[in-house]
Design a binder for these strands. Structure first.
Lengths: 344, 344
DNA sequence: TTGAAAGCGGTACCAT
DNA sequence: ATGGTACCGCTTTCAA
């Protein structure tokens, strides 16, 4: 729970912020009338001259309604809270995110991203709950606990939606089946005759929630085929890649699923510099289907991942808000498909 | 209304959100006492047994204070609003952004990103003003007008800070001198004997606020040298790059500043495919110093851009909030430096 | 040590 | 067609 603000610099502001009372005074009407006019309340009819006077007064004062006061009175808000911490870069996510925000706005929600770096579990949930959002959509940035969900719902959130790799109790969980990504990539490599398949595990923080399930998927794919999977920790820098490439022949690898296209490019370059031919000696598969991969030589094989549409998720949020009695369901949504080019 | 679900009888939806009055009732004290205890108000001394009863009651009810009510009463908030629209991807920006949020949080501000896709100028300012933020930091996503700044300040914002390429009246403007990026890149090309220098202008929306100033900077760099600058519109796809590369010899270009490393890679690949040798026939310079560039062959020359530190900006925000009487200043902050590799 | 009550800025019911 | 007014949840005097 947050401490009271001791900062209170009771410095007199040059101007005081205009309220609806100021508008009423200037227009010579009551606060009620101001509210009716500015909200176009249909249940009440206000004469045209009065409307004009109110509008002009509001304009002149630069009046802007106070969202906190409004939602306090209304007893609810239209705020959808999106906790964010480390921004997952990448065009795929970026596009989804923009679509999602745009769609929610069209549904008349106020989209607010709450910077949650350094917040964890229950503490995070409490911080979010203070804002009394009507819905919380956790994009996997912060792991939400069952406790946290309970706090949010108790404080009035009508929908809690998680987009991630794990199911959380009490939420509409949208599972991004990362395991499937590793599975299709590895299956493809096995089918094309590869036997000893490396799987890159980025050492950068935050990526393990994706890379772990992908490795599991890869293991599923080789089960019963006689092929084997070798985890390959890798930092996103040239030294790390060169070191790994230097051990390549000792490792006896003839294929690698490189986590994504960027790591794939890094590793492929290092392999080529180390005299390992791609795809002859070693096949390389990335993921994300970046333009980047098509520019490489050989052109990079990849896994194309279809992320949930922003608009689709926005509609799910809206439905969950309007019908909270519908029990939360878990849906899986990540179609993964291998795009074979020249590197495999 | 919704009937209680038989499967989850302990979670009837109609249940109301606990308030401090509920806590007071359960603890057998007044609301004032609850406030004192939960806020650790030092001016008032409450007996230990009472404190415990209050805390236990709050815990049992899952009480979370209502931020809107609190700031309504206090007359101010500690919210810093960051309007966002299209997420500018890229590790440079991403890192800055995380640092910035983290630093603000440490200064006890609540960082809120407000999704502003499709909002413009005054309308946007009004939407932000409704939340009564103590400060607004516009990262260039939405162009703020003088009018908009006025609206924000009138509604209580004690600091408005813009990070962008243009100065906006009434704000602390942090200018990212994009012109300098184009200037140093082009000067480098001129110094190494190039005469006809292309400057890539991405056709993707939103990038013109960067590319325009960069082109201007390039023009400054050739002034009086006899060299010339040729604007080169380019979409971020292979077709567009191939078409441009096909016209290369007709254009008579012997160098190109490719906007950034990604466009540079795209174009360099197209040039090589079209039989244009890099750097012999044409020198290529990118920007952003991505790892990507070091992986290309030839290794890509680039412009390294030093972005303002997140912590530094957070402190500027804090100072501006605490001393709003200090007049807004404009500061320039983007150190640009050419990193010469093999492509130029 | 604790409680009663005013009031922050809106909205909406009930009078007039 | 308008105005008076009782709230929403919380903090903070002032009184007891």
């Amino acid at each position: 729970m947050s401490q009271p603000t001791e900062h209170t610099p009771e410095r007199p502001l040059g101007r005081t912020v205009p309220t609806s009372a100021d508008v009423a005074r200037l227009a010579g009407v009551s606060r009620a009338t101001v509210s009716y006019v500015l909200n176009n309340t249909s249940a009440v009819r206000i004469s045209e001259p009065t409307r004009r006077r109110v509008r002009e007064a509001a304009e002149e004062l630069g009046y802007v309604p106070h969202a906190a006061a409004r939602s306090l009175r209304a007893g609810h808000s239209r705020m959808v809270l999106l906790p964010t911490s480390h921004v997952p870069v990448g065009p795929l996510y970026s596009r989804f995110f923009n679509d999602f925000q745009w769609a929610l706005r069209r549904l008349d929600y106020t989209v607010v991203q709450y910077g949650s770096v350094g917040l964890e579990g229950e503490e995070a949930a409490r911080a979010w709950a203070e804002l009394r959002p009507v819905a919380v959509v956790s994009l996997g940035a912060v792991q939400l606990t069952g406790q946290g969900v309970e706090i949010l719902k108790r404080s009035g959130a009508r929908a809690v939606i998680t987009l991630g790799t794990r199911h959380v109790d009490g939420t509409h969980a949208l599972l991004m089946d990362q395991g499937r990504v590793g599975e299709v990539a590895t299956a493809h490599l096995v089918e094309t005759g590869r036997r000893t398949i490396g799987v890159v595990l980025p050492e950068e923080p935050g990526l393990d929630i994706f890379s772990g399930p992908r490795l599991d998927g890869a293991r599923r794919a080789v089960r019963g085929t006689g092929a084997t999977v070798v985890p390959l920790p890798l930092r996103y820098d040239e030294e790390s890649a060169a070191a790994l490439a230097g051990r390549w022949r000792d490792l006896g690898l003839d294929a690698v699923f490189a986590y994504n296209d960027e790591y794939a490019m890094l590793l492929m370059r290092a392999l080529q510099d180390a005299g390992v031919a791609v795809p002859e000696d070693t096949a390389v598969v990335g993921a994300d289907d970046l333009l980047l991969g098509r520019l490489l030589r050989p052109r990079l094989s990849t896994v194309r991942i279809d992320m949930v549409l922003g608009r689709e998720l926005a509609e799910l949020v809206d439905r969950a808000v309007r019908e909270p009695e519908v029990p939360p369901r878990t849906r899986s949504l990540l179609a993964s498909e291998v795009v074979r080019r020249e590197s495999s």
